Simulated assay, not measured.
Amino acid sequence: MKNKFIENELWYLSISGAFQRNSVYAKNIDDKSGKKKEAFKVKLRANVIEIIKRYEVFVSDEDHVDNILEIIAFNKDEILTNGKLTFGTAQKLLNLYLKYIWCTDRLAHMPPHCPVDSVILKKSKQYKSRRWTQLNCKDDYMLCITDLREQASYDNLHLAEWELAVFNNR
């Protein structure tokens, strides 16, 4: 019962963080009851939970980016802006969920990346003025990750550890 509660809270925090400050849902959708949004979130969660199982072993940058792209491809829906999640939203959702389960000792390995958001981008050398919600492709995302890794290397930290330090000191 406690584990289910924690898992639900971690998911709620992840989806809230990924969907905030972001036009995820299409305007003018007919969903007064919220059932369409809820059904979408249930499908999305099931997809992310399946993807998370792949992180029981080391996951390369390429595989991690493929997982982000899979979230986008698998979760197309008419209730979403342009019918799909943006790259920025999908990366934040996956990276945030990985961070939370790693920090609660539910993940065997450190996440390969960190959630790219405004707090972290402000620490970037080249992307300070970039908005995470406007990350639209894997190439832009990986340029940010490379720059952030360089910042982390100054502190001799893995990117995930560095992000925790930055986030805790904000």
Rank of each mutant, 00 (worst) to 15 (best):
4 K>P: 02
8 N>Y: 10
11 W>P: 04
13 L>P: 04
16 S>Y: 10
16 S>C: 09
17 G>L: 03
19 F>M: 10
20 Q>H: 11
20 Q>N: 12
20 Q>T: 10
21 R>Q: 13
21 R>I: 05
23 S>L: 14
26 A>I: 08
26 A>L: 12
27 K>T: 13
29 I>G: 01
33 S>V: 00
37 K>A: 08
38 E>N: 10
40 F>T: 08
40 F>Q: 05
40 F>E: 08
44 L>V: 07
46 A>G: 11
50 E>H: 11
51 I>F: 04
52 I>K: 10
55 Y>C: 04
55 Y>I: 02
55 Y>H: 12
56 E>C: 07
60 S>F: 07
60 S>G: 07
61 D>L: 05
62 E>P: 07
69 L>P: 01
69 L>V: 06
70 E>V: 01
71 I>C: 00
73 A>F: 02
74 F>V: 12
77 D>I: 04
77 D>S: 14
80 L>R: 08
80 L>M: 09
86 T>H: 04
89 T>R: 15
92 K>W: 04
92 K>I: 02
92 K>S: 04
93 L>P: 09
96 L>K: 06
96 L>F: 03
97 Y>I: 00
97 Y>P: 00
102 W>A: 06
105 D>W: 09
106 R>H: 10
118 S>K: 11
119 V>D: 02
124 S>Q: 08
125 K>P: 01
125 K>S: 10
125 K>V: 09
127 Y>P: 04
128 K>L: 04
130 R>H: 12
131 R>M: 14
132 W>K: 04
133 T>W: 07
134 Q>A: 12
134 Q>G: 03
136 N>G: 12
137 C>F: 06
137 C>R: 07
137 C>Q: 03
140 D>Y: 12
140 D>N: 13
145 I>T: 06
147 D>Q: 01
147 D>W: 05
151 Q>D: 09
151 Q>P: 09
151 Q>H: 07
152 A>N: 00
152 A>L: 02
152 A>H: 03
153 S>T: 02
154 Y>T: 01
161 E>Q: 11
162 W>V: 00
163 E>C: 02
169 N>L: 06
